[in-house]
């Protein structure tokens, strides 16, 4: 699939980037529900792939600059200490 020219994730501020991660993740899950009842719908599948790529890029961009959002995005340079020091989901700063 042709790699879509990636949006300038790096130009986004922290909150905007976090919204992009959340919005794209939501869209992937919602399209998943549609695909469960329309498994052969190619439009739906490509729409999901597109947003899944945006989610991955946005989450990577966020991790690079503000710390990993999920354990899947912890990178070995910062290591585990940095991961456990960033705000936890239930802490005010995380939202």
């Amino acid at each position: 699939m042709m790699k879509k020219p990636s949006k300038s994730w790096d130009a986004m501020g922290k909150d905007e980037l976090l919204r992009a991660v959340q919005a794209n993740q939501f869209a992937v899950r919602d399209l998943m529900l549609y695909l469960d009842t329309h498994p052969t719908d190619a439009n739906a599948l490509s729409a999901l792939m597109l947003r899944r790529q945006d989610y991955a890029d946005a989450a990577d961009a966020y991790a690079k600059r503000f710390g990993a959002l999920t354990v899947m995005h912890v990178n070995d340079e910062d290591g585990w200490v940095a991961w456990s020091n960033t705000p936890w989901p239930w802490e005010k700063e995380a939202n």
């Binding site: 919204r19 992009a20 959340q22 919005a23 794209n24 939501f26 869209a27 919602d30 399209l31 549609y34 009842t37 329309h38 719908d41 439009n43 739906a44 729409a47 947003r51 945006d54």
Partner: peptide, 20 residues
């Protein structure tokens, strides 16, 4: 039965609670 329609932009979808 639901038919395919172009999904809403993801920010609007998140607010509306659906991409459709």
């Amino acid at each position: 039965f639901q038919c395919w329609e172009e999904p809403l932009p993801e920010y609007k979808a998140l607010c509306q609670g659906t991409v459709f």
